[in-house]
Simulated assay, not measured.
Amino acid sequence: MELTTIWFILIAVLWTGYFVLEGFDFGVGVLLPYVSRDEADRRLVVASIGPVWDGNEVWLLVAGGATFAAFPEWYATLFSGFYLPLFLILLALIARGIALEYRNKSDSTRGWDRTFFWGSLAPAFLWGVAFANIVRGVPLDARHEFTGNLLTLLSPYALLGGVTTLALFTFHGALFLTLRTNGELRQTSARIGRQAGLAAFLAGGLFLLLTQLNDPKPATWVTTVVAAAGIAAALALIGRRDGWAFTANTVAIVAITATLFGGLWPDVMPALDPANSLTVTNASSTPYTLSVMTWVAAIFTPVVLAYQAWTYWVFRRRLTAPRDESPVRQGS
Protein backbone atom coordinates (compact mmCIF):
# COMPACT_ATOMS: atom_id res chain seq x y z
CA MET A 1 0.00 0.00 0.00
CA GLU A 2 1.34 3.44 -0.92
CA LEU A 3 2.18 5.91 1.83
CA THR A 4 -0.31 8.43 0.44
CA THR A 5 -3.07 5.86 0.87
CA ILE A 6 -1.89 4.99 4.37
CA TRP A 7 -1.96 8.62 5.44
CA PHE A 8 -5.35 9.23 3.89
CA ILE A 9 -6.67 6.33 5.97
CA LEU A 10 -4.89 7.57 9.11
CA ILE A 11 -6.37 11.04 8.71
CA ALA A 12 -9.80 9.46 8.27
CA VAL A 13 -9.23 7.50 11.49
CA LEU A 14 -8.21 10.66 13.34
CA TRP A 15 -11.36 12.48 12.23
CA THR A 16 -13.41 9.45 13.21
CA GLY A 17 -11.89 9.47 16.69
CA TYR A 18 -12.54 13.19 16.98
CA PHE A 19 -16.19 12.91 15.98
CA VAL A 20 -16.78 9.96 18.32
CA LEU A 21 -15.11 11.51 21.38
CA GLU A 22 -15.62 15.22 20.88
CA GLY A 23 -19.08 14.44 19.53
CA PHE A 24 -20.48 13.55 22.93
CA ASP A 25 -18.70 16.60 24.41
CA PHE A 26 -20.59 18.80 21.96
CA GLY A 27 -23.81 16.96 22.73
CA VAL A 28 -23.41 17.43 26.47
CA GLY A 29 -22.88 21.16 25.94
CA VAL A 30 -25.97 21.46 23.73
CA LEU A 31 -28.07 19.56 26.27
CA LEU A 32 -26.89 21.48 29.33
CA PRO A 33 -29.84 23.90 29.54
CA TYR A 34 -32.40 21.17 28.77
CA VAL A 35 -31.44 18.38 31.17
CA SER A 36 -30.51 20.52 34.19
CA ARG A 37 -33.04 21.56 36.82
CA ASP A 38 -30.67 23.54 39.02
CA GLU A 39 -27.02 24.35 39.65
CA ALA A 40 -26.35 20.90 41.14
CA ASP A 41 -27.49 19.28 37.88
CA ARG A 42 -25.47 21.72 35.81
CA ARG A 43 -22.34 20.98 37.82
CA LEU A 44 -22.96 17.28 37.34
CA VAL A 45 -23.40 17.65 33.56
CA VAL A 46 -20.17 19.64 33.26
CA ALA A 47 -18.33 17.21 35.53
CA SER A 48 -19.30 14.30 33.27
CA ILE A 49 -16.86 15.52 30.61
CA GLY A 50 -14.54 17.49 32.88
CA PRO A 51 -11.65 14.99 32.94
CA VAL A 52 -11.72 14.17 29.21
CA TRP A 53 -12.91 17.07 27.05
CA ASP A 54 -9.50 18.65 26.53
CA GLY A 55 -7.95 15.29 25.69
CA ASN A 56 -10.67 14.69 23.12
CA GLU A 57 -9.73 17.90 21.33
CA VAL A 58 -6.22 16.55 20.78
CA TRP A 59 -7.66 14.38 17.99
CA LEU A 60 -8.53 17.56 16.08
CA LEU A 61 -5.05 19.01 16.57
CA VAL A 62 -3.40 15.81 15.37
CA ALA A 63 -5.76 15.53 12.39
CA GLY A 64 -4.95 19.10 11.37
CA GLY A 65 -1.23 18.58 11.87
CA ALA A 66 -1.25 15.32 9.92
CA THR A 67 -3.11 16.98 7.05
CA PHE A 68 -0.61 19.84 6.98
CA ALA A 69 2.37 17.48 6.93
CA ALA A 70 1.04 14.72 4.66
CA PHE A 71 -1.12 16.75 2.25
CA PRO A 72 0.00 20.41 2.41
CA GLU A 73 -1.89 21.36 -0.76
CA TRP A 74 -5.10 20.00 0.74
CA TYR A 75 -4.45 21.91 3.98
CA ALA A 76 -3.77 25.17 2.14
CA THR A 77 -6.86 24.94 -0.07
CA LEU A 78 -9.10 23.86 2.80
CA PHE A 79 -8.07 26.59 5.22
CA SER A 80 -8.10 29.36 2.62
CA GLY A 81 -11.43 28.39 1.08
CA PHE A 82 -13.15 27.57 4.38
CA TYR A 83 -11.50 30.39 6.30
CA LEU A 84 -14.61 31.95 7.88
CA PRO A 85 -16.33 28.69 8.97
CA LEU A 86 -13.08 27.31 10.39
CA PHE A 87 -12.39 30.61 12.15
CA LEU A 88 -15.85 30.49 13.72
CA ILE A 89 -15.23 26.91 14.84
CA LEU A 90 -11.90 27.88 16.38
CA LEU A 91 -13.48 30.86 18.13
CA ALA A 92 -16.28 28.66 19.49
CA LEU A 93 -13.82 26.04 20.75
CA ILE A 94 -11.78 28.72 22.53
CA ALA A 95 -14.88 30.23 24.14
CA ARG A 96 -16.10 26.77 25.13
CA GLY A 97 -12.80 25.90 26.79
CA ILE A 98 -12.76 29.18 28.71
CA ALA A 99 -16.33 28.59 29.89
CA LEU A 100 -15.49 25.12 31.17
CA GLU A 101 -12.43 26.35 33.03
CA TYR A 102 -13.99 29.45 34.60
CA ARG A 103 -17.62 28.56 35.36
CA ASN A 104 -16.72 27.12 38.78
CA LYS A 105 -14.46 30.08 39.56
CA SER A 106 -17.19 32.67 39.11
CA ASP A 107 -19.98 33.80 41.43
CA SER A 108 -22.44 33.59 38.53
CA THR A 109 -22.35 30.64 36.13
CA ARG A 110 -25.21 31.63 33.81
CA GLY A 111 -23.03 33.51 31.35
CA TRP A 112 -20.45 30.74 31.22
CA ASP A 113 -23.17 28.14 30.70
CA ARG A 114 -24.54 30.08 27.73
CA THR A 115 -21.03 30.31 26.32
CA PHE A 116 -20.58 26.57 26.81
CA PHE A 117 -23.89 25.93 25.03
CA TRP A 118 -23.14 28.08 21.96
CA GLY A 119 -19.49 26.99 21.94
CA SER A 120 -20.73 23.41 21.61
CA LEU A 121 -23.62 23.98 19.21
CA ALA A 122 -21.69 26.03 16.64
CA PRO A 123 -18.89 23.48 15.96
CA ALA A 124 -21.37 20.59 15.99
CA PHE A 125 -23.27 22.31 13.17
CA LEU A 126 -20.36 23.85 11.25
CA TRP A 127 -18.31 20.65 11.02
CA GLY A 128 -21.23 19.05 9.22
CA VAL A 129 -21.47 22.01 6.83
CA ALA A 130 -17.73 21.86 6.12
CA PHE A 131 -17.55 18.12 5.44
CA ALA A 132 -20.73 18.15 3.36
CA ASN A 133 -19.07 20.72 1.10
CA ILE A 134 -15.89 18.67 0.88
CA VAL A 135 -17.81 15.55 -0.12
CA ARG A 136 -20.08 17.34 -2.59
CA GLY A 137 -17.26 19.31 -4.24
CA VAL A 138 -16.32 22.99 -4.27
CA PRO A 139 -15.29 25.43 -7.03
CA LEU A 140 -11.52 25.21 -7.54
CA ASP A 141 -9.49 26.72 -10.35
CA ALA A 142 -6.55 25.13 -12.17
CA ARG A 143 -4.22 26.25 -9.35
CA HIS A 144 -6.44 24.47 -6.81
CA GLU A 145 -7.56 27.75 -5.27
CA PHE A 146 -11.09 28.17 -3.95
CA THR A 147 -13.11 30.51 -6.18
CA GLY A 148 -16.40 30.58 -4.29
CA ASN A 149 -17.65 32.61 -1.33
CA LEU A 150 -19.48 32.05 1.93
CA LEU A 151 -22.84 31.62 0.21
CA THR A 152 -21.28 28.88 -1.94
CA LEU A 153 -20.72 26.87 1.23
CA LEU A 154 -24.31 27.30 2.46
CA SER A 155 -26.12 25.10 -0.04
CA PRO A 156 -29.17 23.11 1.15
CA TYR A 157 -27.07 19.92 1.07
CA ALA A 158 -24.38 21.51 3.26
CA LEU A 159 -26.92 22.88 5.72
CA LEU A 160 -28.50 19.43 5.92
CA GLY A 161 -25.04 18.08 6.74
CA GLY A 162 -24.83 20.58 9.59
CA VAL A 163 -28.25 19.60 10.92
CA THR A 164 -27.23 15.93 10.72
CA THR A 165 -24.04 16.31 12.76
CA LEU A 166 -25.79 18.55 15.28
CA ALA A 167 -28.58 16.02 15.81
CA LEU A 168 -26.18 13.08 15.84
CA PHE A 169 -23.83 14.68 18.38
CA THR A 170 -26.76 15.76 20.55
CA PHE A 171 -27.98 12.16 20.57
CA HIS A 172 -24.44 11.01 21.37
CA GLY A 173 -24.24 13.45 24.26
CA ALA A 174 -27.58 12.27 25.64
CA LEU A 175 -26.40 8.67 25.52
CA PHE A 176 -23.18 9.66 27.28
CA LEU A 177 -25.13 11.37 30.06
CA THR A 178 -27.34 8.31 30.54
CA LEU A 179 -24.15 6.29 30.84
CA ARG A 180 -22.49 8.65 33.32
CA THR A 181 -25.32 9.83 35.58
CA ASN A 182 -28.02 8.45 37.88
CA GLY A 183 -31.50 9.32 38.99
CA GLU A 184 -33.69 11.97 37.42
CA LEU A 185 -30.85 13.44 35.38
CA ARG A 186 -30.33 10.09 33.69
CA GLN A 187 -34.07 9.76 33.04
CA THR A 188 -34.27 13.25 31.55
CA SER A 189 -31.24 12.54 29.35
CA ALA A 190 -32.82 9.30 28.14
CA ARG A 191 -36.10 11.04 27.30
CA ILE A 192 -34.38 13.81 25.35
CA GLY A 193 -32.08 11.22 23.80
CA ARG A 194 -35.05 9.41 22.25
CA GLN A 195 -36.16 12.66 20.62
CA ALA A 196 -32.64 13.53 19.44
CA GLY A 197 -32.20 9.99 18.14
CA LEU A 198 -35.29 10.29 15.96
CA ALA A 199 -34.06 13.64 14.60
CA ALA A 200 -30.61 12.19 13.92
CA PHE A 201 -32.09 9.14 12.18
CA LEU A 202 -34.28 11.25 9.87
CA ALA A 203 -31.67 13.89 9.06
CA GLY A 204 -28.84 11.38 8.74
CA GLY A 205 -30.90 9.06 6.55
CA LEU A 206 -31.79 11.88 4.16
CA PHE A 207 -28.20 13.13 4.10
CA LEU A 208 -26.77 9.69 3.31
CA LEU A 209 -29.43 9.14 0.65
CA LEU A 210 -28.53 12.39 -1.09
CA THR A 211 -24.84 11.52 -0.77
CA GLN A 212 -25.45 8.18 -2.44
CA LEU A 213 -27.44 9.78 -5.25
CA ASN A 214 -24.77 12.41 -5.81
CA ASP A 215 -21.89 9.93 -5.86
CA PRO A 216 -22.44 6.17 -5.96
CA LYS A 217 -18.97 5.36 -4.57
CA PRO A 218 -20.01 5.00 -0.91
CA ALA A 219 -20.90 1.36 -0.28
CA THR A 220 -24.54 0.51 0.32
CA TRP A 221 -23.59 -1.77 3.22
CA VAL A 222 -22.19 1.24 5.09
CA THR A 223 -25.57 2.95 4.94
CA THR A 224 -27.14 -0.27 6.17
CA VAL A 225 -24.72 -0.34 9.11
CA VAL A 226 -25.61 3.27 9.98
CA ALA A 227 -29.33 2.53 9.96
CA ALA A 228 -28.96 -0.69 11.96
CA ALA A 229 -26.68 0.95 14.51
CA GLY A 230 -29.03 3.91 14.96
CA ILE A 231 -32.03 1.62 15.51
CA ALA A 232 -30.00 -0.54 17.90
CA ALA A 233 -28.96 2.54 19.90
CA ALA A 234 -32.58 3.68 20.24
CA LEU A 235 -33.78 0.22 21.29
CA ALA A 236 -30.94 -0.16 23.79
CA LEU A 237 -31.75 3.26 25.24
CA ILE A 238 -35.39 2.30 25.69
CA GLY A 239 -34.29 -0.94 27.34
CA ARG A 240 -31.95 0.94 29.70
CA ARG A 241 -28.90 -0.75 28.22
CA ASP A 242 -26.89 2.44 28.33
CA GLY A 243 -23.53 0.95 27.41
CA TRP A 244 -24.94 -0.84 24.38
CA ALA A 245 -26.80 2.29 23.26
CA PHE A 246 -23.65 4.40 23.41
CA THR A 247 -21.65 1.70 21.60
CA ALA A 248 -24.26 1.36 18.85
CA ASN A 249 -24.33 5.10 18.20
CA THR A 250 -20.54 5.10 18.14
CA VAL A 251 -20.72 2.50 15.37
CA ALA A 252 -23.15 4.75 13.49
CA ILE A 253 -20.74 7.73 13.71
CA VAL A 254 -17.85 5.55 12.56
CA ALA A 255 -19.90 4.28 9.61
CA ILE A 256 -20.98 7.80 8.59
CA THR A 257 -17.38 9.04 8.69
CA ALA A 258 -16.28 6.02 6.67
CA THR A 259 -18.98 6.86 4.13
CA LEU A 260 -17.76 10.45 3.81
CA PHE A 261 -14.09 9.58 3.41
CA GLY A 262 -14.92 6.59 1.22
CA GLY A 263 -16.81 8.95 -1.04
CA LEU A 264 -13.77 11.21 -1.28
CA TRP A 265 -11.19 8.63 -2.33
CA PRO A 266 -8.97 9.11 -4.30
CA ASP A 267 -9.73 12.83 -4.03
CA VAL A 268 -9.06 14.83 -0.90
CA MET A 269 -10.79 17.98 -2.14
CA PRO A 270 -13.13 17.32 -5.07
CA ALA A 271 -13.72 20.23 -7.44
CA LEU A 272 -16.87 20.93 -9.39
CA ASP A 273 -14.63 20.54 -12.41
CA PRO A 274 -13.03 17.12 -11.84
CA ALA A 275 -9.89 18.20 -13.70
CA ASN A 276 -9.12 20.66 -10.89
CA SER A 277 -9.66 18.24 -8.00
CA LEU A 278 -7.00 17.68 -5.37
CA THR A 279 -6.10 14.01 -5.03
CA VAL A 280 -3.91 11.98 -2.71
CA THR A 281 -1.26 12.17 -5.40
CA ASN A 282 -1.11 15.83 -6.39
CA ALA A 283 -1.72 17.12 -2.84
CA SER A 284 0.80 14.95 -0.97
CA SER A 285 4.20 15.68 0.54
CA THR A 286 7.38 14.01 -0.66
CA PRO A 287 7.87 10.27 -0.04
CA TYR A 288 10.68 11.05 2.42
CA THR A 289 8.39 13.27 4.53
CA LEU A 290 5.69 10.61 4.56
CA SER A 291 8.22 7.96 5.56
CA VAL A 292 9.49 9.97 8.53
CA MET A 293 5.92 10.74 9.60
CA THR A 294 5.03 7.06 9.44
CA TRP A 295 7.83 6.12 11.84
CA VAL A 296 6.88 8.90 14.25
CA ALA A 297 3.22 7.87 14.16
CA ALA A 298 4.09 4.21 14.71
CA ILE A 299 6.05 5.07 17.85
CA PHE A 300 3.88 7.69 19.54
CA THR A 301 0.33 6.80 18.52
CA PRO A 302 0.12 3.69 20.78
CA VAL A 303 1.41 5.77 23.71
CA VAL A 304 -1.25 8.44 23.23
CA LEU A 305 -4.02 5.88 22.79
CA ALA A 306 -2.93 3.99 25.90
CA TYR A 307 -2.92 7.16 27.99
CA GLN A 308 -6.38 8.23 26.81
CA ALA A 309 -7.77 4.73 27.37
CA TRP A 310 -6.35 4.81 30.90
CA THR A 311 -8.03 8.19 31.51
CA TYR A 312 -11.43 6.85 30.51
CA TRP A 313 -10.90 3.77 32.66
CA VAL A 314 -10.10 5.86 35.74
CA PHE A 315 -13.21 8.04 35.27
CA ARG A 316 -15.54 5.23 34.19
CA ARG A 317 -17.98 5.29 37.11
CA ARG A 318 -21.30 7.07 37.17
CA LEU A 319 -21.47 10.49 38.79
CA THR A 320 -23.80 11.29 41.65
CA ALA A 321 -24.41 14.50 43.56
CA PRO A 322 -26.46 15.35 46.65
CA ARG A 323 -29.17 17.96 46.27
CA ASP A 324 -27.11 20.63 48.00
CA GLU A 325 -24.04 22.67 47.11
CA SER A 326 -21.45 20.07 48.09
CA PRO A 327 -18.98 18.98 45.39
CA VAL A 328 -19.79 16.36 42.82
CA ARG A 329 -18.43 12.96 43.76
CA GLN A 330 -17.89 9.72 41.95
CA GLY A 331 -20.54 7.08 42.62
CA SER A 332 -20.69 3.40 41.92
Rank of each mutant, 00 (worst) to 15 (best):
A229I: 02
T211L: 13
P156M: 00
G29K: 06
T178W: 09
A66M: 10
D267K: 12
W74E: 14
S189D: 07
S36K: 11
W221D: 15
L198G: 08
M293I: 13
A196R: 00
G243M: 08
F300E: 15
P51G: 07
T115S: 13
T16M: 05
R186L: 13
V58Q: 06
V328E: 01
D324H: 01
Q212T: 13
A275T: 12
V46C: 08
P218G: 04
S326Q: 03
S108H: 13
F246Q: 03
W244M: 15
F125L: 06
P322N: 15
V254H: 12
T311I: 09
Q308M: 14
S120T: 04
L44T: 10
V62C: 09
L159M: 10
P156K: 03
E2S: 14
T289A: 11
L32P: 01
A232V: 03
V251S: 10
N249C: 03
L290I: 07
A255S: 03
A132E: 02
L213F: 12
P123A: 07
A142L: 12
A99T: 02
Y34M: 14
S48P: 11
L272S: 07
W112N: 02
L121I: 01
L31F: 06
V328H: 07
G173S: 05
Y157F: 09
F171N: 11
A232F: 00
L86C: 06
K105E: 14
L175W: 02
L84S: 12
T147E: 01
W59E: 02
W59P: 02
R43D: 09
L14A: 08
I94Q: 09
L260P: 01
L319V: 07
A258E: 06
F71A: 07
T181C: 09
F82M: 05
F315Y: 14
N249H: 09
S189W: 02
L198Q: 05
I253V: 14
F201L: 12
R96S: 09
P123S: 14
A229M: 02
L60D: 09
W118N: 12
F8V: 11
R194P: 07
D273C: 06
A306H: 10
F116Q: 05
E2F: 13
A63M: 13
R37H: 13
A248V: 13
A40N: 08
R180P: 06
Y307F: 13
W74G: 09
A245D: 02
V58L: 11
A142N: 11
V62T: 04
R42A: 06
G262K: 01
A229T: 10
G230T: 07
A12P: 05
G65K: 13
L175Q: 08
Q330R: 14
F68T: 05
V251M: 02
V280Q: 01
A219C: 12
I299T: 15
G183Q: 06
G119M: 07
V268H: 09
A130S: 15
W313F: 08
S155W: 01
V226F: 08
G183S: 04
T223R: 11
S48N: 04
P33I: 06
L209Q: 12
A271Q: 00
R180W: 05
R103I: 12
S120L: 10
F131L: 10
A124H: 03
L177M: 08
E73K: 15
P302L: 04
P287N: 05
W310K: 10
N282D: 12
P156F: 00
A258P: 09
